[in-house]
Deep mutational scan, measured.
Amino acid sequence: PAHPYDRLKTTSTDPVSDIDVTRREAYLSSEEFKEKFGMTKEAFYKLPKWKQNKFKMAVQLF
Protein backbone atom coordinates (compact mmCIF):
# COMPACT_ATOMS: atom_id res chain seq x y z
CA PRO A 1 0.00 0.00 0.00
CA ALA A 2 1.11 3.54 -0.71
CA HIS A 3 1.87 5.96 2.12
CA PRO A 4 2.18 9.76 2.01
CA TYR A 5 5.68 11.18 1.61
CA ASP A 6 5.37 13.12 4.88
CA ARG A 7 5.12 9.84 6.80
CA LEU A 8 7.91 8.09 4.87
CA LYS A 9 10.71 10.67 5.03
CA THR A 10 13.41 10.08 7.63
CA THR A 11 12.53 13.31 9.46
CA SER A 12 8.83 12.43 9.79
CA THR A 13 7.15 13.27 13.10
CA ASP A 14 4.55 10.55 12.46
CA PRO A 15 6.51 7.77 10.70
CA VAL A 16 4.85 4.71 9.19
CA SER A 17 5.72 1.56 11.08
CA ASP A 18 6.06 -1.92 9.59
CA ILE A 19 7.83 -0.87 6.39
CA ASP A 20 11.18 -1.87 4.93
CA VAL A 21 13.15 1.27 5.83
CA THR A 22 15.77 0.43 3.20
CA ARG A 23 13.07 0.82 0.53
CA ARG A 24 11.05 3.80 1.74
CA GLU A 25 10.63 5.05 -1.83
CA ALA A 26 8.73 1.89 -2.78
CA TYR A 27 5.81 2.97 -0.58
CA LEU A 28 5.22 6.26 -2.42
CA SER A 29 2.32 6.45 -4.86
CA SER A 30 3.40 6.64 -8.51
CA GLU A 31 2.32 10.29 -8.68
CA GLU A 32 4.19 11.32 -5.55
CA PHE A 33 7.24 9.31 -6.60
CA LYS A 34 7.40 11.13 -9.93
CA GLU A 35 6.92 14.48 -8.18
CA LYS A 36 9.79 13.86 -5.72
CA PHE A 37 12.25 12.01 -7.97
CA GLY A 38 11.37 13.48 -11.38
CA MET A 39 11.16 10.00 -12.93
CA THR A 40 9.10 6.82 -12.79
CA LYS A 41 9.82 4.01 -10.33
CA GLU A 42 10.79 1.84 -13.30
CA ALA A 43 13.43 4.34 -14.45
CA PHE A 44 14.65 4.79 -10.87
CA TYR A 45 15.22 1.07 -10.30
CA LYS A 46 17.30 0.86 -13.50
CA LEU A 47 19.83 3.30 -12.01
CA PRO A 48 22.95 2.02 -10.23
CA LYS A 49 22.42 1.52 -6.49
CA TRP A 50 24.76 4.40 -5.54
CA LYS A 51 22.77 6.77 -7.73
CA GLN A 52 19.46 5.57 -6.25
CA ASN A 53 20.87 6.26 -2.77
CA LYS A 54 22.01 9.73 -3.82
CA PHE A 55 18.48 10.56 -5.01
CA LYS A 56 16.99 9.06 -1.85
CA MET A 57 19.27 11.19 0.36
CA ALA A 58 18.23 14.31 -1.54
CA VAL A 59 14.56 13.70 -0.73
CA GLN A 60 15.10 12.45 2.86
CA LEU A 61 14.25 8.82 2.14
CA PHE A 62 17.65 7.36 3.08
Rank of each mutant, 00 (worst) to 15 (best):
V59H: 08
F62A: 12
Q60F: 12
T13D: 13
K9E: 11
Q60I: 09
V59P: 05
F55L: 15
R24F: 04
I19M: 00
P15E: 05
M57N: 08
K49I: 14
I19R: 02
T40R: 02
Y27C: 07
F55Y: 14
K56G: 02
F55H: 14
T40K: 07
I19H: 03
D14E: 06
P15R: 03
K54V: 13
G38C: 12
A2N: 15
T11Y: 06
E42N: 15
D6C: 12
S30H: 13
Q52P: 01
I19E: 05
N53Q: 13
T11N: 14
S30C: 14
L61K: 04
V16F: 09
P48Y: 02
E25Y: 06
A2P: 15
T40V: 06
D18E: 10
Q52I: 02
T10R: 00
Y5W: 11
D14Q: 03
M39E: 01
A43Y: 09
T40C: 14
T22M: 02
W50M: 05
D20N: 08
K49H: 14
E32C: 08
K36G: 01
D20F: 02
H3K: 04
K46S: 13
D18L: 07
V16G: 04
V16A: 08
L47I: 01
E35T: 10
A2W: 15
E32Y: 02
D18H: 10
D6T: 00
F33P: 05
D14N: 13
E25W: 02
S30G: 12
E32M: 08
K34P: 05
F62E: 12
K41R: 10
D20V: 03
A43M: 13
Q52E: 01
L61E: 05
W50A: 08
Q60W: 07
V21G: 07
K36V: 15
M57A: 07
M57Q: 13
W50E: 10
E31Y: 09
M57D: 10
P48K: 05
N53L: 12
E32Q: 09
F62V: 10
P15T: 03
L8G: 08
E42P: 10
S29A: 10
L61C: 11
F37W: 03
N53P: 01
K36Q: 12
M57H: 10
M57R: 14
R24T: 13
K54S: 11
D14V: 06
E25F: 09
V59K: 03
P1C: 15
A26L: 10
M39D: 00
S17H: 14
R23V: 04
S17D: 13
D14A: 02
E31W: 06
V59R: 03
E31Q: 13
L28C: 07
A2R: 14
Q60K: 09
M39H: 01
V21Y: 10
Y27D: 03
K36T: 15
P1S: 10
F62C: 15
K56N: 02
T11D: 14
A58M: 12
V59F: 10
F37M: 07
L28R: 01
E32D: 12
S30Y: 13
T22K: 08
S29Y: 03
V16P: 06
P4M: 06
Y45F: 04
W50G: 04
W50H: 09
T13I: 11
T11W: 05
H3P: 08
E35G: 05
V59S: 06
P1H: 13
